[in-house]
Amino acid sequence: MQYNNLGKSGLKVSQLSYGAWVSFGNQVDVKEAKVLLQCCRDHGINFFDNAEVYASGRAEEIMGQAIWEMGWKRSELVISTKIFWGGMGPNDKGLSRKHIVEGVKASLKRLDMEYLDVVYCHRADPSTPIEETVRAMNFVIEKGWALYWGTSEWSAQQITEAWGIALRLDLIGPVVEQPEYNLLSRQKVESEYSPLYNNYGIGLTTWSPLASGVLTGKYSKDNVPANSRFALENYKNLANRSLVDDTLLKVEKLKPIALELGVSLAQLSIAWCASNPNVSSVITGASKEAQIVENMKAIEVIPKLTPSVLEKIEAAVQTKPKLI
């Protein structure tokens, strides 16, 4: 496993990481989580991602209990969570100082940890001034509840504004953004965020490298495996949006490229994301140990992504965005 700096910070994160979205609390309990997390560690993963909204907080509880029961050394782990959707009350969501402070403390309690390595603002909050959010995230860091802060699915303009405020007030700016990034979703990472990498040293921890499983090739319009994500009731709408003819055709065109390299389509897709130099870590998800083992082999595929192979991939998906 390779370890990259998280943006321009000194924090080292594994090139591939593991996220609790969907699986923990929905498909996986503490006993199963211990097996999955140990498999991740055995493959060199040190970075584990969560959020207060995942399974309404249960995902954090499961991850925290599993880590505690396994007796892992905290300093060897990089643990992140995301704050925005904490409950139904008017102050239980968003990025106000009140919810950031209360949300982080609640996450720490669920995880049974003294601090988080990274706390993300899970979305931008149009009802809260960005200055209030920047000041609140710095308060969290000053209290020692988190070491770094970042954003998730913010626009380049919002991240730029946050950094402008941080520089003006001599505060800490966001070191990382967590956007969706895969062969079917590229606009933000490859175009919109381009100025941020040099201007602020922003790193990326990207999610959904397999486009919620579409890029594994296991789905067709008429075939949704019973134990898959799209079979879950909460994800039926996402399935309807994802399993469209144009997308499935792109997937079919990618299959011969993976076959020629002797790798799975999932490994090819994850390796492609990880090969982007602006990506510090690719967050993978899995509900089964075999899926983790399969995903980790993507590390071995990265050197195979020669210019000619990348050209074939571009020709297959035709999703390269125009630079802004």
Rank of each mutant, 00 (worst) to 15 (best):
S208P: 12
N5F: 06
N26I: 05
M70V: 09
Y193T: 11
V309G: 06
E161N: 15
L6Y: 09
R123Y: 06
E32C: 02
L310C: 13
W85A: 12
L11T: 12
A316W: 00
Q178W: 01
K312H: 01
K322C: 08
P195Q: 07
E233C: 03
L167F: 06
F230P: 07
S228Q: 10
G64L: 00
Y193P: 01
E69P: 05
I270Y: 00
W21R: 09
G150Q: 11
K93W: 04
N46H: 07
H43T: 06
K312G: 01
T128M: 03
A239T: 06
D29E: 14
S96G: 03
Y18H: 10
A51N: 07
E131W: 05
A239L: 08
I283K: 00
E76L: 13
A226I: 12
Y120G: 08
A298H: 02
A106C: 05
M113I: 13
I83N: 03
M70Y: 08
P174F: 07
L116W: 10
L6K: 07
A266E: 00
N295A: 09
Y115P: 04
V53S: 13
K218Q: 15
A156S: 15
L204G: 07
K288R: 15
H122T: 02
L215S: 10
N4M: 09
N234F: 11
E32Y: 07
A166P: 11
K98T: 11
E61S: 13
E161I: 14
V224F: 01
S275V: 05
I313K: 03
I270C: 03
K73T: 10
I62D: 04
I172G: 01
V244D: 06
V101S: 14
M113E: 01
W85Y: 05
K218D: 13
M296L: 07
V189E: 15
Q65W: 08
L16S: 05
G213A: 01
L204K: 10
M70P: 01
I100H: 04
E252G: 01
I67T: 14
W207R: 12
F139S: 12
L268H: 01
Q267I: 04
C273T: 08
V13D: 08
P209S: 12
E32Q: 14
I165P: 11
V301S: 09
D117R: 13
P174C: 12
P256M: 04
K250Q: 10
I159F: 11
L108S: 10
K297W: 05
Y3C: 07
E60T: 00
F139G: 00
H122D: 04
T128F: 07
I79H: 03
S9L: 08
K288S: 00
W21H: 00
L11V: 13
E294C: 09
K109V: 02
T306K: 14
V301N: 09
G203W: 08
P321F: 02
F230K: 08
L238H: 13
C40G: 12
V175R: 11
E52G: 02
C273L: 02
G262W: 11
G94L: 03
V293W: 08
E153Q: 06
A231R: 06
I202K: 06
Q178E: 14
S80G: 15
R186Q: 15
P179I: 05
K255G: 02
L243W: 07
P129Y: 10
T284D: 04
T319P: 02
G203Y: 10
P256F: 01
K304Y: 05
I292W: 05
I79P: 11
Q187K: 15
A124E: 13
L265R: 04
